[in-house]
Simulated assay, not measured.
Amino acid sequence: MRSFFSILGGMGTIATESYVRLINHRVKISRDQDYLNYILVNHATVPDRTSYILNPSEHESFLPYLIEDIEQQNKLGPDFIVMVCNTAHYFYEELQKNSQAPILHMPRIAIKQMVSQYPTEEKIGLIATRGTIADGIYKNEIEKVGKEVVLGGPEIQELVDELIYQNIKEKGIVDVALYHQILQKMHDDYGVNVIVLGCTELSLAQEKGSNHQYQVIDAQSIIADVTIDLATRIRKGQDKQSLINHYQKA
């Protein structure tokens, strides 16, 4: 297969399914051959990212598992790689060093889109896993563009954990009412007009529960659109690296 990209998924599987559904349904097609060429690596047994980041001495690192995936993809030669897990970007630099293909940086691309879409907003809400909050993946990207990060109080994280883990990861369901409650509390109690969804399970919640009035930056939705644009233009012969730089450079 020529002109294809690879997806590092399975972290978790239901969120990866959401991403694949987005790219399949958003690409413009009039025949089977118009769909995108891709390889999906649904590596469901990658150790929990948040557990390791919060307590590395007691939990197995997920880095060796992802490096193994990268090395397998090096043999296949994709044009680029999409990693469908925000928290896994904790090891982005190490993974990119081992990859012969460019790895799209989902948080960086999402925040670049945020600046373009909401240039005057100074306070940005962030909801994510405890691992993503702790490692500063999104905080650093948001502060780089001169914005203030608002996380909310501990009750917000407890609700987010319930939505991500007890609902989506453990039961495979989305509690849309709970998702809307989180957005409402971030807006009403903490005064943010734009909320970054820093977890692909939250992106799944947005897909299932988009009928609300709040402004969100959905990283998985954004990376899906970028994936389609890149894959389509690379297939037409446009320069891969310049296209990727367009999305990832400040």
Rank of each mutant, 00 (worst) to 15 (best):
Q184V: 15
T120G: 04
E207Q: 13
V160H: 12
Y38H: 04
I168M: 00
T120E: 14
V46E: 03
Y52R: 07
K144P: 01
H25L: 12
L163V: 07
C85Y: 01
V216P: 03
M83A: 10
R21F: 10
E71Y: 12
N42Y: 05
D225V: 04
L66K: 04
N245I: 06
N193L: 05
I244E: 02
G131Q: 10
E155I: 12
S221E: 10
E58T: 09
Q220R: 02
P47W: 09
I223F: 01
G198N: 09
E60I: 13
D229K: 14
I111S: 01
L163N: 05
I182F: 08
K123N: 11
L202A: 04
I70Y: 05
Q213S: 14
D189N: 10
I217C: 00
Q238I: 07
K185C: 00
T227E: 04
E141D: 11
G12R: 00
L151A: 03
M1D: 08
I142M: 08
H105Q: 05
K208D: 09
I228K: 11
S61K: 09
T16H: 00
D48N: 11
Q238Y: 12
S6R: 05
K236C: 07
G136N: 10
G191Y: 12
Q220W: 03
Y38M: 01
A44Q: 04
T200Q: 00
L178I: 11
T45Q: 15
E58C: 13
Q238D: 09
E60L: 14
P154G: 13
L243C: 08
Y179K: 10
V145K: 12
K144W: 07
I228P: 05
Q215P: 04
K185G: 02
H43L: 04
I173Q: 14
A88Q: 08
G136I: 07
R235E: 11
L40Y: 03
R235L: 06
S221C: 09
T132H: 04
K28A: 10
L104I: 06
L230R: 03
I244S: 00
P119A: 08
H246T: 09
F4A: 05
A224M: 07
G146T: 09
K147R: 15
